[in-house]
């Protein structure tokens, strides 16, 4: 009798559970982080011709599209040209610099919270807090610095404050190579939580990140070349084209997660939000997959 109840319960729960069901594409069934990355790379080296080499992974979809690479060069040149900067670029840089440099009410500055004035600090994240088991991303550390010094925390979803600050602070780690080590049980658990999100189907489309950025990477969705997961986490936040102003705006990695959830029609209620535990778990897994690649914050990506 009890068993029947259990079966009934399961039958009712299954449709709901189907949402979290994983997509069995490269890396899905591998048990360790090393094997997961290897399986993904093996698939890509079979599918991409020629295989993407070395640091070129960071170029993402530009590897498949000369036109978008040219466009990227053009926008990068404009961002660096004081007389032709796209609207939004100088504003964001100024806002970020102000947040980074202006002393708090207690006289301390952001740079005082980090060793070497923040140089290389972003590459200490994401990391797993051994006591809590939670993933801390660099933006959490930026906010902790503020609150430890009596200032209000910034909203992780606010690109004009947290996004801008993140670019300025992360640029101090440009060129450093990602070096995530997944060793302790807490780290393994965090990696697996993030992996589950990446391979998990969500929303009414029942699509997973892994569909577009592993299984179909290199293919084209509505004229957009799908970037491979390897290299994605190395170059955030980005400046993206902003339709409303005809300029650019800042998008952090967590905000990008939201963007992809929006464009795959994931219900707002089901979405993982900037700064949340889930987005941080995802960032941990995501960043591991870019191990060895150089960081570059504030680059242009359409």
């Amino acid at each position: 009798m009890k068993n029947i109840k259990l079966v009934l319960l399961l039958a009712f729960c299954l449709p709901a559970m189907a949402i979290a069901e994983g997509v069995n594409t490269a890396g899905y069934s591998e048990k360790t982080p090393e094997a997961t990355l290897k399986a993904i790379h093996t698939l890509f080296s079979k599918e991409f011709s020629p295989d993407i080499k070395g640091d070129n992974w960071v170029k993402g979809s530009m590897n498949f599209n000369k036109g978008s690479e040219e466009y990227n060069k053009l926008m990068t040149a404009r961002m660096n040209d004081d007389f032709d900067q796209p609207v939004g670029y100088p504003e964001a840089m100024a806002a970020g610099k102000k947040l980074w440099e202006t002393p708090f009410a207690n006289g301390k500055k952001m740079a005082d919270c980090f060793a070497k004035g923040g140089k290389g600090a972003a590459n200490d994240y994401p990391r797993v807090n051994a006591a809590t088991g939670k993933v801390e991303v660099f933006e959490h550390a930026l906010n902790k610095c503020r609150t430890d010094n009596g200032e209000k925390a910034l909203d992780y979803g606010d690109m004009k404050t947290m996004g801008a600050l993140s670019i300025v602070a992360r640029r101090l780690s440009d060129g450093e190579r990602i070096k995530i080590e997944v060793k302790t049980d807490a780290e393994k658990a965090a990696f697996n939580r993030g992996k589950e999100i990446f391979y998990g189907r969500v929303g009414k489309f029942e699509q997973a990140c892994a569909h577009c950025h592993i299984q179909k990477a290199g293919k084209i969705a509505r004229t957009e070349d799908l970037s491979p997961i390897i290299g994605q986490a190395a170059h955030f936040p980005v400046f993206r084209i902003h339709k409303a102003t005809d300029g650019v705006h800042v998008i952090t990695l967590h905000k990008r997660y939201q963007g992809c959830q929006n464009s795959t029609a994931v219900d707002k209620k089901l979405q993982i939000k900037p700064g949340s535990d889930q987005s941080s778990d995802l960032e941990y897994f995501h960043t591991y997959i870019s191990n060895g690649l150089p960081l570059s914050a504030g680059v242009f990506r359409k």
Partner: peptide, 9 residues
């Protein structure tokens, strides 16, 4: 093009 399907499902 890319952002429109995002509306909802």
């Amino acid at each position: 093009c890319k952002t429109t399907p995002g509306s909802s499902a």
